[in-house]
């Protein structure tokens, strides 16, 4: 598998607080990688650094070998990094259709518009019925669906999903895990921040554990589950 996306020795600050400490992680083409850790461990900061909402103090970020460390967020999105934040970030006053259109327009400029619609319909057929509804009037699960679909609308090569299964009923979680597998089946890589190790182990090809801003484990998900020390740290 060839390397698609990489953080190398990244240090990120939030204000005066040193949050990420020399974080290195990599995602290969077509691979699903989970980043697990407790609340406040640095998962969200890692994803926000990856998409460029937070700037790095030192270290490098690469997409397909090209350095994007100082690239503005919107350029990263256009180059193929999709992002769905923990709170979904659905525009409340826009309809679902408009929420999806933004990425679609930019994808259409690249000539990928039609394929995007098919992919979204394959993942979440119920989106069709939600199209005229305003973002404000969606349930938690619907917001998660729209957020993931919207991130897909730009025809990304990698999706960054922050806690995509959080707050969902167990049966719904299974549906979303299914969706994540389908996305992988479409050849799109995934980097998922997840606090629940069991969920992470269900989708991940590889797993990183983060604690206090440092990567404390990298490797096979089953090896993480067997590693008592790692599990103790992650579960708190």
């Amino acid at each position: 598998m060839s390397l698609l996306f990489e953080l190398a020795a990244v240090n990120t600050y939030r204000g005066a607080a040193h949050v990420l400490r020399a974080v290195s992680l990599a995602v290969n083409e077509g691979e699903t990688v989970c980043l697990v850790g407790r609340n406040g461990a640095g998962k969200t900061t890692t994803l926000e650094t990856a998409i460029g909402l937070l700037s790095v103090r030192s270290g490098t970020i690469r997409l397909r070998g090209q350095e994007i460390t100082r690239m503005p967020t919107h350029d990263r999105a256009r180059r193929g990094i999709g992002y769905a934040p923990e709170d979904c970030g659905i525009f409340p006053d826009l309809t679902v259709a408009e929420n999806l259109q933004i990425g679609r327009w930019l994808a259409t400029d690249k000539g990928d518009g039609g394929a995007v619609d098919e992919r979204i319909a394959a993942l979440f057929p119920e989106i069709e019925q939600l199209l005229p509804r305003r973002g404000l009037n969606l349930s938690g699960g619907q917001k998660k669906m729209v957020a993931i679909s919207r991130a897909m609308a730009l025809a990304p090569s990698i999706l960054l999903l922050d806690e995509p299964f959080e707050g969902l009923a167990p049966v719904v979680v299974s549906r979303f895990i299914d969706a994540a597998r389908k996305i992988k089946g479409m050849g799109i890589s995934l980097l998922i921040a997840e606090s629940n190790v069991t969920n992470a182990a269900r989708v991940a090809d590889r797993l990183y554990a983060i604690d206090r801003g440092e990567i404390i484990f990298a490797g096979d998900p089953r090896r993480a589950l067997d590693n008592e020390e790692v599990m103790k740290t992650i579960r708190g």
Partner: peptide, 18 residues
């Protein structure tokens, strides 16, 4: 649409390529 998206959530708008 892009104008309203930016006004509602500037960070998310940029993460969508705006």
């Amino acid at each position: 649409v892009m104008l309203r998206a930016t006004s509602q959530d500037m960070r998310m708008a940029s993460a969508l390529g705006i």
